[in-house]
Design a protein around this nucleic acid. Structure first.
Lengths: 138, 138
DNA sequence: ATATGTGCAAAAATTTTGCAATACG
DNA sequence: CGTATTGCAAAATTTTTGCACATAT
């Protein structure tokens, strides 16, 4: 049983075929799939799965903090496994999502929260930018 | 005509009574109202307004970058006027939203984007935390 | 065994849209 | 006046839910 499945079991969830399929999809997804996308991919592993189960499972995983629910500006949610901590830079011209990590930023966030009188529990940073054109190749 | 209305007109929008009402609501809202809340508040100023107009107007204002659309984790959007730049710290126990600004953070974001090869166009940071209990008063 | 989980279809909630009527510039 | 804008109601989308049946522990 994978570590991820183990964590679900420890949280009291039964490890059903549908849940295994959804976890498998999340583990093998390099992107940030929408509910519909998780559903489509999971159907290949378990064709009997219903979208209601996908919604219910992703909600549970979110409550357990095993996934992060992103609400970009699209009118629906995208999900992503929480196995390494990073942030997103969205390329405004291509829509490409680049992940990054920055230690100084991590320190600064904690400090800002502390200065406001808070212990930081979670946070999220999104940058939106345009690729710098390389002028030296002119 | 307020500066905000002026900017709308310059962008080519006609300044109708409904739009004036919505802008007035946004200007006098210290919080981050949902579409429904903007609608309810605007109805007091112009009882004929419809929620479709509120949706359409907020979309337009978002395109013009006069408001920011926030997608917290609630299943609907909240809007806020873009008249000063800040970020949000959400108190996980009370739901209270605290606004803050931090110069070091502003510099760091630009640097991170630049290091990734991007010019920063927009960004958003949300912190989620719990109030530190004051133990000295024990 | 039995509490949990699931599929299905219906409902709820949020947002968008077509169209005839209205009003801004 | 001409055209952008509106209200209304219907439609489209996304998400949630009730319930009878199925399944993991």
């Amino acid at each position: 049983m994978s570590d991820l499945e183990q964590q679900c079991v420890e949280a009291g969830l039964k490890m059903t075929g549908q849940r295994k399929a959804i976890l498998e999809v999340l583990k093998s997804s390099g992107d940030h799939p929408s509910v519909e996308e998780v559903y489509d991919r999971a159907k290949r592993l378990d064709s009997s799965i219903s979208i209601a189960t996908v919604y219910r499972t992703l909600s549970l995983l979110d409550e357990l903090n095993l996934v992060t629910r992103h609400e970009f500006q699209e009118g629906y949610s995208r999900y992503e496994l929480n196995w390494d901590h990073h942030h997103h830079l969205v390329d405004l011209e291509t829509g490409e999502v680049i992940e990054f990590q920055n230690d100084e930023l991590e320190r600064l966030k904690i400090k800002i929260a502390k200065d406001l009188g808070y212990d930081l529990v979670d946070h999220r940073l999104e940058l939106y930018g345009k690729r710098i054109k390389d002028k030296s190749k002119k």
